[in-house]
Amino acid sequence: MTTPTGAGGSDSIAVIDYGMGNLHSVASALAHVAPRARVRITAERDEIAAADRIIFPGVGAIRDCMGEIRRLGFDTAVGDAVAAGKPILAICVGLQALMQHSEENGGVDCLGILPGRVRFFGRDLRAADGRHLKVPHMGWNQVEQTLDHPLWHGIAQHSRFYFVHSYYVEAGDASQVAGRCHYHCDFAAALARDNLFAVQFHPEKSHTAGLQLLQNFTTWQGQC
């Protein structure tokens, strides 16, 4: 039940480590779906530059994340990987860091690799029945696949993925939205452009559907 269909790739995969959060989960999920892949959690720019594929994760507050990304030179490392056409998967705050700007922490400029902004769900949200709509948006929600993309291969339309976030991405270019989710409002659950795929949910915590997406990533050639 937890093993996706197909076989994982054997490339080297660098999981970028800038000290924000649990990278063990994403690395062990990759090892599970692609036992032949060489997965490295790394903060070395050389190692990132040499890897065939890159995972750009992140949790926590955006100000701290952006501070560490810039201090460690990962803004350049990620930008170089994007330009080089390497398959890149950004996860959660990794996705948010790719955008132009986030309103978290009083407003933080992000990498600006993808057009769009990061917005707060809001305080004291109410559902239609008058109950609190809880923030963070935490748990399993459905994702509508709005683009036919190799990373969705083998994943049923409207599958549920695990989310945990208080800020969401408002895409600047609707044609880049690969998956849409609804919580209080519609938001971008996945963005895709060329060799870049970025998700708000946690594929490493999303059971079969998430593992399938990670396995698809390990064999993806970086084209939409």
């Binding site: 063990h24 090892a31 945990v164 490493e204 999303s206 593992l211």
Partner: peptide, 11 residues
């Protein structure tokens, strides 16, 4: 926890 986390892919 390490053992569980390397085999269980839910939160």
């Amino acid at each position: 926890v390490e053992k569980i986390a390397s085999e269980v892919f839910i939160p």
